[in-house]
Structures are given as structure tokens and as C-alpha cells.
Amino acid sequence: MIGQHDPHTGLHSEQGALRGEHPGRARNPIVKVRGLAWLEFQKPDLDGAEVFAQAFGFTTSLRTQDELQLRGTDAGSPCVLIRRGPRSRFMGPAFMAAEPTDVVRLADATGRTIATLPETLGGVTVDLMDPSGLRVRVVSGTHELPALAAQQALTFNIGHDATRVNATQRPPREPANVQRLGHVVLQTTKYLATLSWYLEHLGLIVSDFLYYRGQRERGPVMSFIRCDCGGTPTDHHTLAMVLGPANRYVHSAYQVADLDALAAGGEYLLERGYQRSWGIGRHIQGSQLFDYWRDPDGFLVEHFSDGDLFDCTLEPGWAPMSASGLAQWGPPATRDFLGIKPGREAFRELRAVIGALRQDNEFDLNRLRGLLKVATS
């Protein structure tokens, strides 16, 4: 309608940096990792975790009394490792080194020692700690699980281009088979220091920056970060990082075959009583089709498909952060997804805000005002 502002205008990556803004990459990183290997969690109820995981679309690759390893259909490492513990918590990510010597180079540069991983995983790791206090593993030489039979994407008749004749579309209502781990999103009270650490230590590069509207001169508050594999295109983001009042896991994302797999898999989860957090829609930064769910322990996990792929030549985009700017289409971002739904999580976040404002970090009163505007935009 005339006079109305389209909130999506100017939010795509064609909007670049201004003079003197963050370059989004380190000049001489120690190493350049080639991707996420897995994520590690601790949970008290492995039975409940496995039931949800299989409904979500994972395959169990290892189950013992105290450990659960979950995989996708792609060849490679397990996507998720869950060990039994007294409470649910995120333990940290593991990145895959591009070369075996990169583990040695990181260990030498940081004064850390190289450790042998359990035989169920194989290989070695150097365990680092980012400025937020999160353990970050860089691994090499791990066992590679063989590929499994994958869920096939459907064949579409698009416009007048008819490629499917005398055949119907009947996607079954079944789990959306996870193909692979795509990315993890982390919140930190030390955003700029933590961002620089990942760029300098792991050679990651920024695809898109977000800033609070009216506070661009103070710098970005969120970044979508990809691996630098030279001319080989990689996911728009393997890691995303956002400034906030607490150092915590936000969500992780797992690729599925296509929109039908994502939607039918969502119906399967709903029928079994699981909670959709937000979806279905298509993101702006990264362009992924998305659908977000809460697992029984409250962790946010995402099915995605059809994400952007960038090579090393693309410079970071810059855009204001807003709730309406999180999706090109789909339902509005929910209170649950934004972390403001009344309940235990919102109360925990409120306590974190009060604590962060009393400490020396990047989350100050002006940043809080910017965050509140995002939640209501």
C-alpha cells in the first residue's frame, strides 16, 4: 500500500560496509578450518533425547549407557555427541581441521596440548577456549562414517516446465532425514573480542553483519560467519554470533532434502507432541528455508534447506537487526524464538540482563535498548 514501508528493503548482502568498518576477516589467521565436525551436549535423559532425535530425523550411530552419538545421512563424523550428566548443557563445538598439521600449528600458537580422542571417534583434538569461556575443539584424523541412503528431493513441475508426467506427489509424513550439521549460533557478552578470536584462530570470514538501528557507529552486534575454502563455495554461515546478556547456545541447524521433507517432517513432530518454536519460512541472511523446534531439554534446533553458498571473494553485507528482518516470508518471529515468551527461560534471560549490566562487558544500557527495539520491531 502507498505510504507503507517494506521492512525487507535494503536488508540483503548487497548493502556493504562503510569506510572504516569491520573487514570481517583476519589478515593472517593461524589456520583455516573446513567446517563443523560435531556439537557436544550433556543431558541427564539419554532415552528421551534419542526418541526426539529419531523423530527429528537423526540416525543413532552409537548408544551406550552414558553416551549417544547422532549422525546424518552424509558421510563423515556424527553430527551430535550427547553424554550423560547431571544437567542439560551445551559443551561446545568441534571444527574439522583442513590439514592434520593445522592441529599442531594451533597447539603451538596457543600453548595447548594435542589429545587423542576416544576410539569411537578416532583422531586427535586440540582444545581451545574462546573469550566467552566456551571450549572449542579442532579435530583431525577422525573416523568417517559411510553415507546412508538419503531422502530424495521431489521433482517439481515449475511453471510451464513439466518434468513430472503421469506421476503424483505423495511425500510421506515421516521424519525429515537429517543430511548433515549446518551451523551453530552462539550468544556472547564479549561479541567483538569473541568474533576476532574465531577469525584469527580458525580463519573464518563474515558473510553478513547486523547492527542495532541507530547504533551503526558503535559497530555490529551479530555476524554470520563462514569457512574460507578459497574458490570452493561454502555455507553462508557455519557459525553465527550475537551480542547478548549471557554466554550461551542459541540454536543449531541441520540440513534436510527440500521443503516437502521439512514440512512433512514438521507434521510428524507435531503429531508426537513436540513444540514448534517458529516456522515455516525463508530467512534473509543465508536464504534458508527454516523450521525451528524445541527438544525435550529446551534446546532450539532447526531443519533447513536451500541455503546460500559463498566463496571467499564475497565481502560482508551490513543490515539493521529487526525481528521482521529475520525472514523474507513466513509467520512473524515468535516470542519463544526471540526468548521473550513468559516462563522459566524469559526469567533466566532477565536475570542475565541484570547481571550483565553490572559487569564490564559489551552489553551496556544502550545495547539493551537496541535489543528491546529488535524484539518489538
Rank of each mutant, 00 (worst) to 15 (best):
T234Y: 04
E119F: 06
R135F: 07
P320N: 10
A263W: 06
Y191R: 09
P316V: 04
H303N: 09
H183F: 10
A333H: 05
T113C: 09
Q169S: 09
G72Y: 07
I280G: 01
F90V: 00
N366E: 15
N28Q: 13
A319R: 14
Q288V: 06
P29M: 12
H8C: 06
D260H: 14
V33L: 01
L202Y: 04
G370D: 03
S305M: 00
L181Q: 08
Y274F: 10
P131A: 02
H5E: 13
T194K: 04
Y198R: 02
M96D: 05
Y198G: 03
R63D: 02
I82W: 04
R84Q: 13
S377H: 15
H143K: 13
M321I: 00
M1D: 09
L204G: 03
F337N: 00
P78S: 07
T168A: 15
L300R: 08
E302G: 00
C229K: 13
D47E: 14
V353A: 04
D258S: 06
F209H: 07
Y211W: 12
L148K: 07
L62H: 11
E271F: 04
C229W: 10
R216I: 12
A319T: 13
G122E: 07
R19Y: 05
R348Q: 07
P44V: 05
E267D: 15
E200V: 04
A327G: 01
L350I: 12
P78T: 06
L338D: 01
D228T: 02
P146W: 05
A53P: 13
G281F: 05
N177E: 11
R282S: 03
L181F: 12
Q187H: 15
P29I: 08
V139S: 08
A37T: 04
V51I: 14
H303T: 03
G3I: 04
T113L: 14
D360H: 15
D161P: 00
I225Y: 02
R89Y: 04
L270F: 08
R294L: 02
A150K: 15
L202F: 10
F304E: 10
A109P: 11
L154E: 14
V301T: 11
D295W: 07
Q328Y: 14
F337I: 09
L70E: 03
F337M: 10
L154K: 03
V126F: 09
E345M: 11
A98M: 13
